[in-house]
Computed example of a mutant assay.
Amino acid sequence: MPEIDEKTMVEIEAAAFRTLRDHLMNKRPDVQNIDMMNLAGFCRNCLSRWVQEAAGERGIEMSKEEARELFYGMPYDDWKAQSQTEASPEQQAAFEKAFAENVGKELKE
Rank of each mutant, 00 (worst) to 15 (best):
A40G: 07
E11C: 11
W79T: 02
V10P: 00
V10I: 09
Y76I: 01
F95A: 09
L39K: 14
S83W: 11
Q82E: 15
N26V: 03
Q92K: 13
F99D: 01
A54W: 02
V10D: 12
A14W: 08
R28A: 10
P89Q: 09
K7A: 14
F42H: 03
M25Y: 05
S83R: 13
N26K: 06
K7L: 13
E96M: 14
E96V: 08
R28G: 03
G41I: 02
E57Q: 06
M74A: 12
A94V: 11
E6Y: 09
G41V: 01
V103A: 00
S48P: 01
M36A: 05
S63V: 00
Q82D: 15
V10F: 14
A67L: 00
T85A: 12
N33T: 06
G104H: 04
A67G: 07
K27E: 15
A98V: 01
E86S: 07
E57N: 13
S88D: 02
E65P: 08
N33I: 02
Q91T: 06
W50G: 02
S83A: 14
D77G: 03
M62K: 03
E65T: 07
R58A: 12
A40R: 05
K7T: 14
A94Y: 10
E57L: 04
W50D: 08
K80H: 12
P89D: 09
C43Q: 08
F17S: 12
M62P: 00
A16M: 11
A16H: 07
N45Q: 14
K7Q: 15
N45S: 15
A54I: 04
E61W: 08
T85C: 10
E96S: 10
P89E: 11
E96P: 05
R44Q: 13
S48D: 03
